[in-house]
Design a binder for these strands. Structure first.
Length: 263
DNA sequence: CCCGTGCCCTGGCGGC
DNA sequence: TGCCGCCAGGGCACGG
């Protein structure tokens, strides 16, 4: 599933191929993907930049922003215009010499289209600090962790820190030697500092790997993350210390941790 | 306000 | 071999 590093990679690859080309037409096969705005307002415009915030892609056109969240399985493909529309392709942007196709097996992804002044009407507005884009002030965010909720749940809350998903949160807490069940109000300032440090480290390393996994030799932009080769605890059976990994559920999410290493 | 639950979706997999 | 039911989970709506 695309997480922050994969979204970052998609952004970088798309920037190389779709900028400054006129959108001739748009086909909407599954309209529910769009939950705000009129995607047809992008016709005759060009994508002039692409940014990322958290797990969101922000496409900038001449007069609009298209905000896109891939959720679990969303992907963008670049294909020849002549190729038939395949199953799970829901939105098609047609340019002169190719098409950009939004593909999403489970239809969980969402898009919002707004005028330039209205970015604050999109979910972007509710995001907290981005560990890659922003300089995080630990003392500023520390009070938001003073809650009777598991630290894992708080780290997945995109309005505090954005971009961390279920896989990376397990890895970050493992590296920080913190039990994901510990309540936010038991986390000390220096522990949060360590968590943030490891978050930045893990995400940066994964972005590097993401860059290697783009299949640029095809016309498609399916991103296959190779971060799974680096995972230390998520989906693992045994810890590097030899202890059996505990599999449990926190906030409805599958959770992996080592009860010996993480306290 | 806080927090837990269920929903959206489909493919993959285990069990029979 | 096939079918059924469950599971995966990001974000949001809803309700106690």
């Amino acid at each position: 599933m695309p997480e922050l590093p994969e979204v970052e990679t998609v952004k970088n690859v798309l920037k190389k191929s779709i900028l400054n080309k006129k959108i001739n037409s748009i086909e909407i096969i599954y309209p529910k993907i769009i939950d705000l705005g009129d995607i047809n307002s992008l016709i005759n415009e060009e994508f002039i930049n692409i940014n990322r915030r958290g797990k969101f892609l922000i496409f900038e056109t001449n007069n609009h922003y298209l905000v896109s969240h891939l959720r679990m399985e969303g992907k963008y493909f670049i294909k020849d215009n002549n190729l038939p529309i395949e199953k799970h392709e829901h939105i098609i942007f047609r340019f002169n010499d190719f098409s950009l196709r939004y593909h999403d097996t489970r239809k969980f992804g969402r898009m919002e289209i707004v005028n330039k002044n209205d970015l604050n009407k999109t979910p972007i507005n509710n995001l907290g600090v981005d560990p890659i884009i922003d300089k995080i002030n630990i003392k500023e965010i520390y009070p938001k962790f003073n809650k009777k909720m598991p630290i894992k749940t708080l780290l997945l809350d995109q309005s505090i820190i954005c971009g961390i998903g279920n896989i990376y949160v397990d890895e970050v807490l493992f590296l920080s030697k913190i039990d994901p069940n510990r309540l936010g109000n038991t986390i000390k300032l220096n522990e949060l500092e360590l968590i943030v440090k490891n978050t930045i480290k893990v995400l940066k390393e994964s972005i590097k790997l993401g860059g290697c996994t783009i299949r640029s030799y095809t016309s498609s932009l399916g991103v296959i993350g190779h971060y799974q080769d680096k995972l230390l605890v998520h989906t693992k059976e045994y810890c590097t210390c030899g202890n059996k990994i505990t599999k449990t559920r926190i906030n409805g999410r599958g959770t992996y941790y080592c009860s010996k290493c993480q306290l």
